[in-house]
């Protein structure tokens, strides 16, 4: 099987997709990414906005109904979930191999 050209995901994209397993608006995504990465990945507003725009274009996330009239809410799509799983498998394989050789 040939690997999707969007793989491997970047660290930020991976965390955004992981954060969007549950619906969230922009600022909440930023906070979740920071939390999920134990403070390692900090995203600024302009960067997050662009990243969300790209993910929407690639149909990895989609907008969902929002209670808040100003803030749009997004959630991961099936395609996004598939991508996240593939990248997870890729990294797990890397870790297993590293464990075997190095560990």
């Amino acid at each position: 099987m040939t690997r999707d050209k969007n793989l491997p995901l970047t660290e930020t994209v991976y965390y955004i997709l992981l954060a969007l397993l549950e619906p969230a608006h922009g600022y909440l995504i930023m906070q979740k990414v920071e939390e999920l990465s134990s403070g390692q990945v900090h995203m600024a507003a302009g960067t997050l906005y662009g990243a969300v725009e790209n993910l929407l274009k690639q149909k990895l996330i989609q907008p969902v109904h929002s209670e808040d009239s100003r803030r749009k809410v997004y959630v991961i799509t099936d395609r996004g979930l598939g991508m996240l799983r593939q990248d997870y498998e890729r990294m797990r394989h890397m870790i297993e191999m590293t464990n075997t050789i190095l560990g």
Binding site: H25, G26, Y27, A44, A45, G46, L48, Y49, R70, R71
Partner: peptide, 12 residues
């Protein structure tokens, strides 16, 4: 879209 954009920046 514009409102959402401004809201994100204000939140941050």
């Amino acid at each position: 879209d514009f409102e959402d954009y401004k809201a994100l920046f204000e939140d941050s």
